[in-house]
Computed example of a mutant assay.
Amino acid sequence: MPRISDTLQTSISVEEVRKDFTLRHTHSIKETFLAAVRRRPLASTFRAIDDVSFQIAEGESVALLGLNGSGKSTMLKLISGVLQPDQGRVLTRGRVAGLIEVGAGFHPDLSGRENIFLNAAILGMTKKEIEQRYDDIVAFSEIERFIDTEVKHYSSGMFLRLAFSVAIHTEVDVLLIDEILSVGDEPFQQKCLARIRELHAQGKTLVVVSHDLDMVAKICDRGILMRDGRAVFDGASSDAVAMMRS
């Protein structure tokens, strides 16, 4: 992922970005053969992001809003580096961590303790950083009794608690959050929100994708509204939420 080097106050720069996906219309060799014989298209192109540009300053909290299929999650993955644009470029400053697929790097046959070290390393933390934060990660997850149990024996709630706790304790400059605040029960969700607010107060840059408009209005100052792959509004989060609700 390229890094911004010329504008100290810019954390994320999205410049005339376009992203296309190929949609396949057949699911088997037989269907492919029949489609070819009948001269039907085997695939088509879907433009998920269409000429989008914006900048996010260091320390800003920004929500990407829009209906399903509007392109907001694709944009978040482009910022994280999981996807690359077909046109334009995305520049970021500092260490970026994406809470996009929480626990994606967990191994079911390893214990919670072992998975903390594995997943935190995948998220870019050094062994020393992990050791320094280990106790905080375990305490935040609230599953101390089961930390040396293989995670394949965890309930889904326990798994998500530990995965989120690892991600939220990563040393980052930019934190990307995609619909993961549904983890656990309400008290745990409130603790997660408090931790995110803490990180923002420390000057971290936040980019949030969520359908929870009330939560977005509380933690984000700015909202970018996506529609059919385009950014149709960029302004105060309260105004973006009002547009969504209308």
Rank of each mutant, 00 (worst) to 15 (best):
192 C>Y: 02
6 D>P: 02
140 F>P: 02
70 S>C: 14
28 S>W: 11
157 G>F: 06
202 Q>W: 00
130 I>F: 08
54 F>W: 03
38 R>P: 05
5 S>A: 08
161 R>P: 10
7 T>H: 15
200 H>W: 07
186 E>Q: 15
93 R>L: 12
9 Q>S: 11
209 V>K: 01
170 T>A: 05
80 S>G: 10
34 L>W: 14
98 G>T: 00
168 I>N: 11
220 C>W: 11
231 A>I: 10
121 A>F: 04
31 E>G: 07
181 L>E: 14
82 V>K: 06
26 T>M: 10
120 A>S: 07
82 V>M: 09
22 T>F: 10
119 N>V: 05
49 I>W: 09
58 E>V: 05
130 I>N: 07
35 A>L: 06
36 A>T: 15
190 Q>F: 13
23 L>A: 12
119 N>W: 09
75 M>R: 10
7 T>M: 06
111 S>Q: 04
168 I>W: 09
196 I>G: 12
164 F>E: 08
171 E>W: 03
61 S>V: 02
76 L>D: 03
177 I>D: 04
10 T>F: 04
36 A>V: 12
74 T>I: 00
165 S>M: 00
215 M>S: 08
45 T>M: 00
214 D>Y: 11
13 S>Q: 06
209 V>W: 10
78 L>A: 04
194 A>L: 12
166 V>D: 00
46 F>G: 12
174 V>L: 12
208 V>F: 11
97 A>F: 08
42 L>D: 09
22 T>E: 15
114 E>F: 11
142 E>K: 09
97 A>S: 14
111 S>T: 07
20 D>P: 00
83 L>G: 09
171 E>N: 13
113 R>N: 14
43 A>Y: 14
149 T>E: 02
73 S>Q: 09
139 A>M: 04
9 Q>K: 07
36 A>C: 02
151 V>Q: 01
166 V>L: 06
65 L>Y: 14
7 T>I: 08
162 L>E: 05
142 E>G: 01
204 K>I: 01
165 S>C: 07
169 H>R: 08
53 S>Q: 06
224 I>C: 03
156 S>P: 08
141 S>N: 03
